[in-house]
Design a protein around this nucleic acid. Sequence first.
DNA 1: TAAGGTACTTTGTAATGCAAGGTTCTATAT
DNA 2: ATATAGAACCTTGCATTACAAAGTACCTTA
Lengths: 103, 103
Amino acid sequence: MKKGVLEMCILAIISKEEVYTSDIIERMKEVELIVVEGTLYPMLSRLKSAGYLEYQWRESSAGPPRKYYKMTEKGNDFLRELEKSWSQLVGSVNDIVLKKSKS
Amino acid sequence: MKKGVLEMCILAIISKEEVYTSDIIERMKEVELIVVEGTLYPMLSRLKSAGYLEYQWRESSAGPPRKYYKMTEKGNDFLRELEKSWSQLVGSVNDIVLKKSKS
DNA sequence: TAAGGTACTTTGTAATGCAAGGTTCTATAT
DNA sequence: ATATAGAACCTTGCATTACAAAGTACCTTA
């Protein structure tokens, strides 16, 4: 029923700026959403294989190189889809929750 | 990241009126949320074992008897919890999605 | 008393997200 | 030079969630 909320968040973050994994975790934490590496790495690989993302290696000033992700055209389309079904879900759930009881 | 949206919907429906499974499916369909028996029966059993629901057998005018569910006190508390974390989730996701890109 | 529909239940499976552990690479302290 | 620490990446195994599909029980009607 509720497919792809986390996926949508990740894609939304990447659509704003090129980021690597730790950036994503940080952006999520900024709005009190906790997500961990073990979730993120497989998901990013999946999204990349699906053609929604592409990445580029970049060196870091302190530490090993990082994979910086950015959206593809297809990824942007997919993000718009996800956003649409997300707002539909929110609407439906609000209908259920806010409906007056039969009294 | 976030669990229990469907659970919250089910509990919200039951909190409005005493219903049996087919009623729930119908209420959900009214707001374009599709849920099926195979999802619902195990979930209702779980919620009942957890002490959030109780049920009562009632005869039907045409067919076998039905399990009518209603909330317990504990169930109402739990529902309020779920609603709170649901609106937090909606808020957080909106923050992510609506945030301006760095440009 | 057989047939069909309604209601409840169980089983197997796919997808999701997490914990935990592992590998590689770089910088720094010894 | 070498060991240590830490950053970044990746993998494995597990619990949970939701669904499809098949199965069981009951009730009404022909």
